[in-house]
Amino acid sequence: MRSVGIIGVGAYVPEKKLTNYDLEKMVETNDEWIVSRTGIKERRIAAKEEAASDLAVKASKRALKQAGITADQLDLIIVATVTPDMVFPATACLVQNQLGATKAATFDLSAACTGFIYGITTATQFIKTGVYQHALVIGVDCLSRIVDWEDRNTCILFGDGAGAAVLGPVEDGYGLLSFDLGGNGEGGDLLKVEAGGSRLPASELTVANKQHMIAMNGREVFKFAVRVMSKSTQKALDHAGLEKEDIDFFIPHQANIRIIESAMKRFGLPREKVVVNIDKYGNMSSASIPVALNEAIEQERIKKGDTLVLCGFGGGLTWGSTVIKWSMDQVE
């Protein structure tokens, strides 16, 4: 089967910044506390008229441009999100329409913060088998819309953004070398938005009880994340026949700097190999990994032939890692 990789990347974050100092005026907290507990200094918030598809389209146009293809060449669009524009139609359909990607199959994928990893892994299979030629995978979330702005434990953590990748056939031996995906529904209660579905449809009561907002057990999610990051990364490396010393760049989901530091210490990876941008954006759920990847490319840190590990974890519980031998030449 042919090699498949990322041939274009793009990102978009909303203009409006919300700093820790802004948050000090909203809830009982302060900049020093937030920075030391999370590593976050500011995050982006979508404008009133902006929804997930708007962010996704902007990121996608950049990714398509970098890939050097047009929207009508896309065979598949996957949008990984937990904050779609609406229950249905799928955000992928809205994006398809905006882009004019008339040939593309479209679906949304729900794997919370692991969504982008699930998405690129899924898209890769269609191209590997030769059924499809080009796929667009977008990680996008507007968590600001489902955050409880009165809960100081969670509202400081999240931000909005979108990251997109175009996948297609690449040179032999390059691209996605291996993956590890996983789920554990037993931990579903640790991180959830419980209302608005068929279990608890929206009612005056669900609104009053704040059941449409993110509820999280931070301490247990922290432990889960640290444990699963090293385990999943090791599995993906094993599948690729590589060692941790072979990793040039590690791009983790940006949930909390303390999770990243703890996991990297456990795994034994030096800080300079880890891509971190949480200080500027907070946790953008499925958008965190592609936005960080895009930033590392723009900063010309990643070059052709580098071995990357992308590693995500989140609600579900879900997790996933991919090993990628980078196939793109540095962008001028």
Binding site: R37, R219, E220, F222, K223, V226, R227, R258, S262, R266
Partner: peptide, 23 residues
């Protein structure tokens, strides 16, 4: 701080080869 304690517990599990410490 609270996260140091969580981090410490994770490291204790590894160092002493313990089962996962319950909440």
């Amino acid at each position: 701080d609270s996260l140091d304690v969580v981090d410490l517990i994770l490291n204790l599990e590894q160092e002493f080869d313990l089962d996962q410490i319950e909440e």
